[in-house]
Structure formats: structure tokens, C-alpha cells
Amino acid sequence: MLTWEFSAQDLARTRFAHSPLCELVTSVEVLKDPGRRAVHLPWVRQARDRLADVSWELLSQLVPLPTVYVPDFLTPVPAGSSPTLDEQLADLAALEPAAVRRDLARIDGEPPPLVAEFARDPETGTARLVGELRAYWQAAIAPHRARIDRLVEGEILRRARQMAADGPAGLFTDLHPSVSWERDLLRIGHRHFDAQRRLDGERGLVLVPTVFAWPGVFSQLNPPWQPGLVYPPRGVATLWETDGGAIPEGLARVLGRARARLLAELAAPATTTELAARTGLSAPTVSHHLHALHDAGLAARHRTGRTVLYLRTAAAELLCGER
């Protein structure tokens, strides 16, 4: 169990960020142990085919199973809200050899051959690792980046809305079954770590919604990075679905089948175009129904650049049987 003690200043500095590198690294765990992460099986089947001709042996050895520790340079807490993979890889490439060796030294037991070689020659190993990460990303993650980003954006919007309504308790409510908030304490039920830490009042905690973290949570504790909590966003179970969510029949009798179907689909944020493709309805018809749901307080919309995302409101989630 890890317990973080917050002050008012820590809460004021707590923020969200999305990390492409963290998505990549946690996806390696999914590929190596898909049985424990069945939600991602559709992705696993595609990724294995796409990675057939990609070399990622060093990356694989750096993410062992069971995963008790992954070198911190592979899962840095983002300094900004949404760094690109290129920016994160540039930071990795610029690491001092001493920083690489420091993180590798935290690995328990005898390191695998490529990791031992990496520790002996960090500069060569870092160049190889950056190349593997880039190739892995292009093959396995990039084809799905848009839907991953939309799910994470929807998660951040939902949490911001909860905090505006209920304060810090609303921010951490139902974040994850192993996470709880009581007064000024955030408790995280890690199996392999037991400690109580106090945030320093200057940096707060960074919450990093990460699709491939499901079903677990992970903490980043080591300097120089800001403390971070990696957790799966709500709606991961819908991410790879192609058939759409189940339509609540009682709701369909009240709203009509098309609008009930759209609310079921909005368990995860989506655009009008995506909803039209999933439901078979025309884009103008979907837009008409979404406007009606928005006017009724059942669908919220948020613009990100040129994209408009729709997601269910709290009232709609209650109607759909979710809390």
C-alpha cells in the first residue's frame, strides 16, 4: 500500500497528462501476458502481426514479467500535459549515461543479456532502444492513436467535471478499485510496495490515464520526475469494440432506439463520424439526435482542435445503468 499525504498546495498543483511512451511500455506488458488483459485481445492479435518483422528484443527485456519495476527512463512523468512521442524519445536520447545506469541498477536479480550490455554501454544501448521504441510505436500503436487519444481526452474531461462538482473527492472517486481518498490521504493498493509519502507542496501529483495500464495502476516515485499515478481511463472495455454497446431496452422505449443506441455508444467519447460508422445511421441523422441529447442534458460536447467529441453526462450514465 502506498499512501500519499496531500496539502492544499499539492491539490492545487495536481494535474493530468498523457504519455505516449507510457502507453507504449504498458502495451508491451499486454503483449507478453494477454491472458490477464483480455480486454485488449483484439489489439494483441493485430499487434503481433504488425510486429512480426520488427526488432524489439531490448525493449522486451526491459519490461519483464512479472513487472515489479520498469526503468524510470522508460516511464517518465510528463513535464507538460501532452508531449509527443518524438519529444519523449528526444529526452530519452539525451539522458546522461549515469542516469541510465542508475535506473538499470534498480532492477532486481541478474539482468538479462541485452540489459547487462546496455548497462555497460549506455550510449549505444540508448540509441538502439530509441530505434526499437520508434519502430514498435509505428507498427503497434500509431494505427490506433486517434481512438486512444479520444478515450484519454474524455477521461480528463469527466474527471475535471467531477472535481468541479465535488472537489478532490470527486476527482479521485472511482478512479480505480485500488485507489481511495480520505481527508488528505490518497491510498493506492500496490501489492509489492508499502510506504507513506508526503508530497512536498511544490509539485503535486500527475495523473496519467493510460489505456494499456488496464487493469492495474502504477506509481512513479523516483526523482527527478514529479510523482505520478498511471491508471486506466474509464471506458477501456469499449475501446476495441466493433459491435457497439448494449442498448438499454427501457431507455429505448422512452427515447427511441436510435438515441438509446447513441447513448450506449457514448460510454467512450466519439465523434459524429465514428458514431455514424458504428451504428449505420447517416451522419446528419446522428448529428440531429446528438443535438437533441445535448439539449436534454444527456450528452456533452467538447472541441479539441477541429474535432468535436461527444460523451455522456452524469445523468445519462445513471439512465444507462452506470455510476
Rank of each mutant, 00 (worst) to 15 (best):
D53Q: 11
L92Y: 01
R187N: 00
H302T: 15
T84H: 13
L199K: 01
T26E: 08
A169N: 09
L31Y: 09
M1D: 12
L290G: 04
A246Q: 14
R50C: 14
L298S: 03
V211T: 06
R37M: 00
P78F: 07
A52Q: 12
P20C: 09
M163S: 02
L318E: 15
P34N: 05
A139R: 08
T279R: 06
T313D: 00
H289E: 12
A105S: 13
P20Q: 14
L157M: 07
P97Q: 11
Y310H: 15
L24G: 02
L85I: 06
A38L: 11
H302G: 01
A17Q: 02
V217C: 01
T14Y: 04
P215C: 12
P97K: 07
P112V: 00
L175W: 00
Y136I: 03
D108V: 10
V63C: 06
D174M: 11
A127F: 05
V230Y: 14
R145L: 14
A90Q: 05
E155L: 02
T273H: 13
V63T: 04
P215K: 11
R158D: 04
S55D: 15
L85N: 11
A105R: 08
R102W: 14
S7Q: 10
C320A: 07
D166I: 00
P248K: 15
L92P: 08
G216M: 02
E96H: 14
M163R: 14
T75W: 09
P76I: 10
A195G: 07
L157E: 13
D295M: 08
V208Q: 04
A119T: 05
D49G: 12
R145D: 10
G201K: 06
I141L: 13
A268R: 15
P111A: 13
L85G: 13
T307V: 14
P209V: 01
P223H: 00
S287E: 14
R312N: 07
K32G: 04
L89N: 03
A314V: 02
V217L: 02
L207E: 03
